[in-house]
Write a protein that binds this DNA or RNA. Structure first.
Lengths: 135, 135
DNA sequence: GTTCCTGCAAAAGCTTTGCAGAAGA
DNA sequence: TCTTCTGCAAAGCTTTTGCAGGAAC
């Protein structure tokens, strides 16, 4: 069994998430493909090796994993959800031409860590423009 | 004629946008109600004084005004578009409980103004959490 | 007069819901 | 065994599209 699957099982157990093959596949795909895929991309890829897989299951899995804090969803400008299994602090760059989503580093940047009266949970930095390939 | 409508007419002329009553209403509503309304909110409000108004026209107007740079759309976490007629640099705080969207100041904060290889056009800072009323 | 806009209806696309059978613990 | 998940079909919502009539310029 590949090491990564053991890691996944550990994390699911830590978070008290029920282990199912579908959830493992989805999470593994996100960990190994750091491309901020759409729901449909995940579905299309995993459907190949698991023809009975349903899109509803992808959505259910997203709910479970993001409630547990293992993944997060970012909304692309088209209003379509994109998935990210890396929850460390980084920015997202959206290419307006090809739709590519790329991480970028936010080390050395500063942000308000508090706004008076508000309880801040997450902060996200999004940039749009044109990626190197499209220029 | 109120001063604000003259300002709107000037801006439309500057941007070479055709003047229609519907567009003026939408833009005026956004300037006077800094609440980051959804498309439906704008539609419902303006429909009262203009019963024949269509949602398609709201969408067409959003296209025209945002292409001209007069407004911008921000995607709430639910995937619904919200409108902002203030294009100066500020952050957006989304309350997870009531859905309120509030501006917050980004003075004194620092961001990457360039990412190598990428042509950056816009940058947006989004925070989520709980607003004062919901705490 | 020409161009562009409005508004209706229908379609498209992503996501959610209800539910019966199946699988995890 | 009990709880929870999967997957199908259908519904829900926001947004887009096609088009005829109408308004802006």
């Amino acid at each position: 069994m590949p090491k990564s699957v053991n890691t996944i099982i550990e994390r699911f157990n830590e978070k008290n998430i029920r282990l199912t093959p579908q959830r493992i596949c989805v999470y593994q795909f996100l960990l190994e493909n750091r491309i901020h895929p759409t729901v449909d991309t995940v579905y299309t890829h995993l459907k190949k090796s698991n023809p009975s897989l349903s899109k509803t299951t992808i959505y259910n899995t997203i709910d479970a994993l993001s409630s547990a804090g293992l993944i997060r969803t970012i909304i692309a400008n088209e209003g379509e959800a994109r998935l990210d299994a890396y929850t460390d602090f980084h920015g997202h760059f959206f290419c307006e031409k090809c739709g590519l989503v790329t991480d970028f580093c936010l080390d050395g940047c500063s942000f308000p860590d508090q706004i008076d009266g508000f309880e801040m949970k997450t902060i996200e930095v999004r940039a749009t423009g044109t990626c190197p390939n499209c220029r």
